[in-house]
Simulated scan of single mutants.
Amino acid sequence: MTDASPSPASPPPAQPRNPLHGITLEAMVVALQQHFGWDGLSSRIPVRCFQNDPSVASSLRFLRKTPWAREKVEGLYLFMLREQRRNARR
Rank of each mutant, 00 (worst) to 15 (best):
M1Q: 02
M1A: 08
M1Y: 10
T2V: 10
A4G: 00
A4T: 07
A4D: 06
A4S: 07
A4R: 00
A4M: 02
S5R: 11
S5Q: 05
P6M: 05
P6H: 05
S7A: 15
P8H: 02
S10C: 14
S10R: 11
P11H: 08
P12Y: 13
P12W: 13
P13R: 09
A14P: 15
A14M: 08
Q15Y: 05
Q15A: 12
P16A: 05
P16G: 07
R17T: 11
R17V: 07
N18Q: 01
N18E: 05
P19S: 08
P19V: 03
P19Y: 12
L20V: 07
L20Q: 08
L20C: 11
H21C: 11
H21I: 05
G22T: 04
I23W: 03
L25P: 02
E26M: 00
E26S: 06
M28W: 03
M28F: 01
V29R: 00
V29D: 00
A31Y: 03
A31T: 04
A31L: 01
L32E: 01
L32A: 04
H35V: 01
W38A: 01
D39F: 06
G40I: 01
G40M: 11
L41R: 00
S42M: 09
S43Q: 13
S43R: 11
S43Y: 13
I45Q: 00
I45P: 00
I45C: 03
I45W: 07
I45K: 00
V47N: 03
R48K: 10
R48M: 12
C49V: 12
C49A: 15
F50H: 04
F50V: 03
F50L: 10
F50I: 02
F50M: 08
N52W: 12
N52Q: 11
N52R: 09
D53Q: 14
D53Y: 14
S55C: 08
V56Y: 08
V56G: 01
V56F: 07
V56S: 06
V56P: 03
A57Q: 13
A57E: 14
A57R: 11
S58G: 05
S58T: 06
S59G: 02
L60V: 08
R61N: 12
R61K: 15
R61D: 10
F62R: 07
L63F: 07
R64K: 14
K65D: 03
K65I: 02
W68F: 11
W68C: 06
A69V: 01
R70I: 07
V73R: 00
E74Y: 08
E74A: 10
G75A: 15
G75L: 11
L78K: 08
L78M: 10
L78G: 03
L78I: 14
F79L: 12
F79P: 00
F79N: 03
M80H: 09
L81N: 04
R82W: 12
R85H: 15
R86F: 14
N87T: 08
A88T: 07
A88P: 00
A88H: 14
A88S: 10
R89F: 15
R90I: 05
